[in-house]
Amino acid sequence: MRTEVRTTANMNINKNIAISETGFVFNPLTGDSFNTNRVGQEILRQLQKGASIDDLYKHLTDTFSVDKATAEKDLADFFMVLKSYQILIEV
């Protein structure tokens, strides 16, 4: 069974993660859970749809009135968190 969705050039997102309306994220493989804000939810949903890094930058700058440099930095930080929770898996 395929449990990952290919998202960026070198990272996959675990497709089994559950994201609630309130931003509660649960990884059923590890039992880890955490809360994320609206921007985090949006990023995770886009990743689940298979968005590329460029798609994400565009989506974030269009939706949240943020410049590309800030989006790049914040996204890099958020990816580190997602990797630590095994939501994003390096391939």
Partner: peptide, 22 residues
């Protein structure tokens, strides 16, 4: 399958969660 979420000083699970680990 279960992962311990809270462990006592004796190493016993005080809380845990069922996992989807095929």
């Amino acid at each position: 399958p279960m992962r311990k979420l809270y462990i006592t000083d004796k190493g016993k699970a005080w809380a845990g969660i069922s996992l989807a680990d095929e």
